[in-house]
Design a protein around this nucleic acid. Structure first.
Lengths: 226, 226
DNA sequence: GCAAAAGTGTTTACATTACACCCATGG
DNA sequence: CCATGGGTGTAATGTAAACACTTTTGC
């Protein structure tokens, strides 16, 4: 069974672009790299892939180690494989992006790793090709958000339409018309109005909404076009 | 610089889903596997990734070896990494799909490798998870064709609107309204009518069209919505 | 002349856009 | 009382879908 033995093996890693949303901004969780090369520079969370796990499992493991969360929403971005991308050696990296509500994370764990949430508009300099991976991740996230109503993955359980509106503004880096946006969203019939109001954002207060029961990612796919 | 050394290396391969179009059908180039395990079974074209090449280069090399063509249109599908996907050992495969006009291939080279073009509706049984890779490829191709006018990559230099219409029917596996389709396409202003007619498809004959000069893949992105 | 592909025109329904305007309330 | 975010209504425009209809020509 060893016809493969004459071929080279490679280091394979996963790198995770972890998106969250706070203060009307998309944010990314970055951390200072703990080993050479480029020790101390800002970097995506990553890890090597073990022989007995899939890429997705490896990515979930990275997310668990850094945020304490399991079963996070995850999408594959693609492979990054320039032979010189990592000066430490030949490493093929598969990029993933993850979405999580920022308050779900284990804050202590994140703090202990030295990680920090960076607004996507003000990222620090990143090692290797990590900026490229982030750019690809944002494009994928935009593609996803344009055919699927995201929000469940990034917002708290209950949220206002203004929050959702601002989230979409942040993702697409443009301003959607507020009135048209809310009409479009409500016409989808996937949100239900809660009796409570949020008064933090305005004097009048805005009603909270939540996704109707028994709705999954799959049900939200291809229900919308932006 | 050897902080990586404690980690496992893996075999990394690329597998290519090669699309072409003939007789109003999408076709895939498959070949009988030349070594164990599963020798003789139908398989995608693939190859191991070398230490000094990117995944894209590895895929282009596979395509060159099997069809004699260079710089083929290529898109990454994603990583396939179930630890048990290949009974011969742990191999992480990155899928790519390629588009090529069927007449461009080096026929002799293809014949010598034992390869065969299969209509996508009548595929033979395939090894490992190759059917899964093909399914993912078709979805990616549909996504691509729904925002970009493909045709340049799959059709001959000059083609009729009916050919393009049939190509889209084949990709989406549905019938677009012929009148609406041609109006939509022509309104994009990326095709020019040639003085010649194709008389093979009908008695009246249909005008050939070709893409206007200096148009690249990039210019065709996001110009359409299907 | 007729079948069949090529090509055009029209009607209807629906979605998107821009924007005007009212509401509620804390300071 | 007014600035501000919350929320509704509407008219104009654009796009998509359905389908009837005309043209051309080999058999």
């Amino acid at each position: 069974m060893d016809n493969y033995i004459k071929h080279n093996k490679q280091y394979v890693a996963v790198d995770c672009v972890i998106f969250s949303y706070e203060d009307q901004e998309l944010k990314l969780l970055l951390y200072p790299r703990g080993f050479e090369p480029s020790i101390g520079s800002w970097s995506l969370m990553g890890g090597f892939v073990k022989e007995d796990e899939s890429l997705e499992n490896a990515a979930q493991q990275v997310l668990f180690n850094t945020t304490g969360l399991k079963n996070i929403y995850l999408e594959q971005i693609g492979g990054f494989s320039n032979p010189d991308r990592d000066p430490g050696g030949r490493v093929i990296s598969i990029g993933f992006y993850a979405l999580m509500p920022i308050e779900d994370q284990n804050k202590e764990l994140v703090r202990n790793s030295g990680a920090h949430w960076w607004p996507i508009q003000k990222l620090p300099h990143l090692i290797f090709d990590h900026k490229e991976i982030i750019d690809a991740a944002l494009i994928k996230l935009q593609q996803k958000s344009s055919i699927s109503l995201i929000g469940k993955e990034l917002l708290p359980e209950a949220f206002t339409l203004t929050q959702l509106h601002n989230l979409y503004n942040a993702i697409f880096q443009k301003k959607f018309d507020a009135g048209n946006f809310r009409k479009k969203i409500l016409s989808l019939n996937v949100l239900k109005k809660l009796p409570k109001k949020d008064t933090s954002g305005s004097k009048r207060g805005a009603f909270y909404y939540t996704f109707i029961d028994n709705i999954e990612h799959n049900n939200l796919d291809r229900i919308i076009k932006f």
